[in-house]
Design a protein around this nucleic acid. Structure first.
Lengths: 192, 192
DNA sequence: CCTTTCGCATACCATCGGTATGCCAGTCAC
DNA sequence: GTGACTGGCATACCGATGGTATGCGAAAGG
């Protein structure tokens, strides 16, 4: 095996096992010794690839966010009507963040570990950007009142994040439909 | 000094210093040795009053949440019109959570440290209850479409939490007015 | 005034994140 | 091919952390 291959393989193993452990136990309860044992390497390897525990978490979080963004983008691009793109994107976001792995890493530990500013910057680079672009397009097209789009993006993003956490904790299937109805009402209420 | 007085004084000192340190450095970066030194006691005292670091944080969080709830309730009770109570309560919530201490403890570390379910239960017992009651009253009065109020409560609560964090990070004063406008538009859009 | 109990200090422990150092295999110039 | 070199990682170690076991002095109670 070439050197670059070996390197990439080790890095992937570390991220994979760290993701699994962070997701199931939470950032604080996971020791680096657990991670390196699960990945089949030692702490020397970990610190060769990452500057520390927080950096490892950042890599995991980035991977999770890119996956969520991919699902949102795919759902939106399946439609042509801009308003439909917004609603379907939101629906896809709620579906993606229903995954407990995503919740724990992206919504709970993410902001606390990296700080909100860094978390938000990463969010803006991935999933939240699709929301912002969709809203900006709708404002331009006149479907939404002319207004700064950033505050609206944050409000809707926060609403969906909290809704996802609530849905996971509630467990009742009918809550998903109720939440979606409430969110849809909210969006319709903003429509011109 | 009587024994109960001494006990209460020590407990208050621990919560006070823990709150200060948690707010400025974040839960993870604060060591218990820092807390007990600032409070003028030892770890023996800390563990006599609290089961561990998380329990100490829980006590701090509860104090913060009760303060926020108090400010929200006071703002709402200053008006008679139920719709006005909702909007003024929301405005007071945004104002209260503008405090960096409140943000770090209540919005960032709270859910990550205690877990979302526990955090939400405490939120429900304090500030979020006012929102839920206001919304329920407005549904009953016909100002809002008849619907389950819990999903709507979570959506609005999450929207405001995220908005508060964004406002603190942005720093630009005009963002507050824009955010409030967007939130007001959202509420008006839901109004019948 | 004697005993009990409560509030807390002291001393200690396992484990944690992080670092310094050494070694071996892959890489490359010639 | 072969030597020097370097990248990838293991080993061994450190200070600090959260947590616990035990002891003690003073207030409470009879």
């Amino acid at each position: 095996m070439t050197r670059a291959e070996q390197r990439e393989q080790t890095r992937r193993a570390l991220i994979r096992e760290a993701r699994r452990l962070f997701a199931t136990q939470g950032y604080g309860r996971v020791g680096l010794s657990e991670v390196v044992k699960a990945a089949g390497v030692t702490k020397g390897a970990l610190y060769h690839h990452f500057a520390g525990k927080a950096e490892l978490f950042r890599a995991v979080l980035h991977e999770v966010m890119r996956e969520v963004a991919g699902r949102v983008a795919a759902a939106a691009e399946a439609h042509d009507d801009p308003w439909r793109q917004l609603t379907e994107g939101c629906r896809a976001f709620l579906a993606a963040t229903a995954d407990p792995e995503v919740q724990r890493i992206m919504l709970l530990d993410g902001p606390a570990v990296l700080g909100w500013s860094e978390w938000r910057a990463m969010d803006e680079d991935t999933s939240a950007r699709h929301l912002a672009e969709a809203l900006a397009g709708l404002v331009e097209a006149g479907d939404l009142a002319r207004q700064p789009v950033e505050p609206l993006t944050r409000l809707l993003s926060g609403a969906m994040n909290e809704a996802a956490l609530w849905l996971a904790a509630s467990g009742r299937p009918e809550d998903l439909e109720d939440t979606w109805s409430a969110l849809a009402r909210m969006l319709e209420g903003l429509r011109r």
